[in-house]
């Protein structure tokens, strides 16, 4: 074998744009700051099906990898690069950053409720992981900022899966009952495109989860729980920021998209409403909010209803912001009764 043939240097002097010198700013050398000259040109369609980095010269004759998502409108959000850097800066480790020592024994009914909620939230994180990771490899390289941000999102979800499991197994309890799974299935089966997955995973489930986590943070029993809920909220806020920015972009660039989203939500709401009939999560939350089973029957359930009103206000507010028109009479009763007008 010839170890290294005589060099020809045929690869030299082959660049679409030379002389680029990006300098670090006050936040360091960020991903977004690299978008200068041709390197910042993000095309509306990316037809190169290889892993050619954006701005590099493609090698001709390469067989396609087979990316399904090659249109900017199906994936893009302007904020993705900034969210990517923010996710890295705000990393945390459940093993060492959560003050586990602050957890003290709780009344049995409250511990059972916390463990049930942790089981559900762990399963939510599982759906985040499985949904996003099933789409990642289908996304074209031309939109690498989004691919990279989503890598942080699944990394976050892995941490959420872990931290809720740790909390459930820390304080004399254990895992509770698995979730009904109907909404999980809907999210995982959103095969009509990444935008559809974003609609179900973030706009519907994400808004609900964020509202729930805010209430859980308010009713946390110790600093460990406060830390967990607070940091999961912080992570999920980034996911929501990407999702809403993407949906806004999609609505602005895809004809009839608001109607499509309205139809998706019409279907999604029905499945979501069916799960609301299931008492498990509702009662577990009411026990936490009410400080026990007795309190759950009164102010615990009242707080749960307040939480639902807040969820519906945020959910409907976002739909309005996206210009997705939804007639109240097309929203299932289980959700409609929490609309602000319903008071």
């Amino acid at each position: 074998m010839t170890p290294v043939p005589n060099p020809k240097f045929e690869w030299m002097n082959q660049s679409r744009q030379w002389g680029v010198r990006v300098k670090p700013g006050k936040k360091g050398l960020t991903l977004g700051s690299l978008n200068v000259g041709i390197y910042g040109e993000v095309p509306t369609e990316w037809n190169d099906q290889t892993r050619n980095p954006r701005g590099a010269i493609a090698r001709r004759g390469m067989p396609p990898v087979g990316y399904a998502i090659r249109e900017k409108a199906g994936i893009w959000a302007d904020c993705a690069a900034d969210l990517y850097e923010e996710a890295i800066q705000r990393r945390w480790a459940p093993a060492t950053d959560v003050p586990w020592d602050t957890i003290e024994p709780l009344p049995d009914d409250v511990e059972r409720a916390v463990c049930q909620v942790c089981t559900e939230l762990s399963q939510y994180a599982n759906v985040d992981i499985e949904t996003i990771s099933s789409w990642q490899h289908q996304m074209a390289y031309g939109y690498h900022e989004v691919k990279q941000f989503l890598a942080t999102a699944t990394f976050d979800a892995g941490r959420h899966y872990e931290v809720f499991r740790k909390r459930a197994l820390r304080n004399g309890g254990g895992l509770g009952l698995e979730s009904p799974g109907e909404v999980n299935r809907m999210i995982l089966e959103s095969r009509g495109g990444w935008t559809e997955a974003v609609t179900y995973l973030f706009l519907l489930r994400g808004t609900y989860a964020m509202t729930m986590l805010r209430y859980l943070e308010r009713f946390a029993h110790n600093d460990a729980e406060r830390f967990i809920y607070g940091h999961v909220i912080q992570d999920r806020a980034r996911h929501m920021a990407y999702a809403l920015d993407h949906l806004k972009y999609s609505v602005a660039h895809v004809e009839d998209q608001t109607t499509v989203l309205a139809t998706l939500l019409f279907i999604g709401d029905r499945l979501f409403a069916r799960e609301l009939r299931d008492p498990v999560l509702r009662e577990a939350l009411a026990i936490i909010f009410g400080g026990g089973v007795e309190g759950a029957r009164t102010h615990g359930m009242a707080t749960w209803e307040a939480m639902m009103r807040e969820f519906m206000a945020r959910y409907e507010g976002t739909c309005e912001w996206l210009r997705v028109r939804r007639a109240p009479d097309r929203i299932p009763e289980e959700m409609r009764r929490f609309l602000p007008e319903a008071d």
């Binding site: 690869w11 680029v20 990006v22 390197y39």
Partner: peptide, 24 residues
């Protein structure tokens, strides 16, 4: 992926020709 892109664009250079070695 991001750190090597950053290095390529940080010192008066730029991206070059891809190898295609990871295609299909």
């Amino acid at each position: 992926m991001d750190v090597f892109r950053k290095r390529a664009l940080a010192n008066g250079g730029g991206l070059m020709k891809a190898t295609g070695g990871t295609a299909g």
